[in-house]
């Protein structure tokens, strides 16, 4: 099947061809329905996405401009307060001292680690024999397949204070005192565990994508570089990396988006559901304000802030995609 597709792709190149081919000879007979047909086909999907993604996006902005609590929810009345929620949000020291740093620093660190680990694994995979590569790839797939919920519980289990295996191991290495260490109490170690969890869950995507890219680097180029006497380190930076720059850019941006809005992995860790105020990030804060405090207005404002930050990253993503080609 893949072969067929590949061959077909060859024949239908340039890629645009398939799309332009839509209207065919003979269509003029029923021009009206022809013009309608794509919209008919699109309608159900557009309705679902419009109703459940676009409209709520507008709605969340609207809610962020209201004092929206239980009373408003039950009565359906609206109480517009302008930018009050944003004023409160931006004037909140916790945002600048705790929540934003948690969100941003965690995302930067987790993304850097994810991409580096993923790339290293890809570079390892590409050098392996097919059988070994198959085994390692399967193992990586297994890591990728662990749902965020269960993955988080395993890491929590591993680091549970006192008797967690990781805590015991650190104790044996003299790096921590098992009797006193609580990895979830301090912000740094809390996010350290979260980073491990997120990197473990996220690197397979990077590894397999980069591997896919590596496999397209023509052998001649690598051989030429070897002939020129370039070492592995230089070969990577002067040949591989420039050729795969778009791949790296995309995995980085996507990982950034995912790590920015990470919720489940934080919420399910001890103290992550709002008890430990020091470890809130934008996602969990928005949720706690809304569903534990009934302050949907403020929660929505936090959600909007998160969305805006993500949109900025998305713009970067789109520019990468659109720079060299068109849709």
């Amino acid at each position: 099947m893949t072969d067929v597709v590949t061959t077909l792709r060859e024949r239908t190149r340039p890629g645009r061809g398939a799309a332009t081919a839509g209207p065919r000879p003979g269509r003029s007979r029923r021009g009206g329905t022809r013009a309608l047909r794509p919209w008919l086909l699109l309608a159900p999907a557009l309705l679902v996405m419009g109703g459940l993604l676009l409209y709520p996006l507008v709605r969340v902005v609207a809610i962020s401009l209201q004092d929206f609590g239980l009373r408003q929810l039950v009565s359906g009345r609206t109480n517009w307060v302008g930018l009050d929620n944003y004023v409160e949000l931006l004037g909140n020291a916790d945002l600048w001292r705790t929540v934003l740093p948690n969100t941003v620093v965690f995302a930067v660190v987790a993304v850097a680690l994810t991409v580096v680990v993923g790339t290293l694994v890809a570079l390892l995979l590409v050098r392996l024999q097919p059988v070994t590569r198959g085994i390692v790839t399967t193992a990586i797939m297994l890591a990728w397949a662990i749902p965020a919920v269960t993955g988080t519980y395993v890491w929590v289990f591993l680091f549970s204070p006192g008797d967690g295996l990781a805590v015991q191991a650190l104790d044996a290495l003299g790096l921590a005192d098992a009797a006193t260490a609580n990895p979830f109490a301090s912000r740094v170690s809390f996010y350290g565990v979260a980073t491990l969890n997120v990197v473990h869950h996220g690197f397979p995507f990077v590894a397999l994508t980069v591997l896919a890219g590596l496999l397209t680097v023509p052998q001649e180029i690598t051989e030429a570089a070897i002939v020129d006497g370039a070492g592995a380190w230089r070969r990577f930076w002067s040949v591989t990396f420039p050729m795969l720059r778009p791949v790296f850019a995309v995995v980085t941006v996507l990982s950034t988006i995912w790590d920015f809005k990470v919720f489940t992995q934080i919420y399910l860790m001890p103290g992550g559901d709002g008890v430990n105020r020091g470890v809130l990030n934008l996602g969990t804060w928005s949720y706690v304000e809304s569903f534990a405090q009934n302050r949907y207005g403020l929660g929505a404002a936090i959600a909007v802030l998160l969305t805006v930050l993500l949109l900025l990253i998305t713009v970067a993503y789109l520019r990468l995609l659109f720079k060299e080609d068109e849709l």
């Binding site: 204070p161 006192g162 009797a179 006193t180 609580n182 979830f184 109490a185 008890v275 430990n276």
Partner: peptide, 12 residues
């Protein structure tokens, strides 16, 4: 904190 009757793990 002073008498050490607890364990830091208990903080959470």
């Amino acid at each position: 904190l002073k008498h050490g009757l607890s364990t830091p793990a208990a903080a959470t």
